[in-house]
Amino acid sequence: MLILTCPYCGVAADETELSPGGEAHLHRAGPGSEDASVEAYLYHRSNPKGVHFERWRHAYGCGKWFHSARDTATNDVFGTYPAQVTETPQNILEAIAQRRPGWERPQ
């Protein structure tokens, strides 16, 4: 069972209290972009076995969107953080580095 702590209300929410929102930190390809980058923005998603960054909504709770970093193979949670960021916060990256030495964000 996956349990994520919502950074807004602080509730340790069970997976069934949350709505999944897919991969986090996508960059929108706006008007005038190349077809290939619009396609990538709309459809290309990473699907790693291991460290992954996701969006979740605390649907059966405070209703807010937040981000999580977890291991998709073990459900080890490295941390959760507010959605009002464009990059993963340093403390989350440090938690990952500590528990997954040598991990690098795929390009």
Binding site: C9, V11, A13, T16, E17, Y60, G61, C62
Partner: peptide, 8 residues
Amino acid sequence: RTRLAQVP
């Protein structure tokens, strides 16, 4: 705030 069976 949580889920009670199938509803909020």
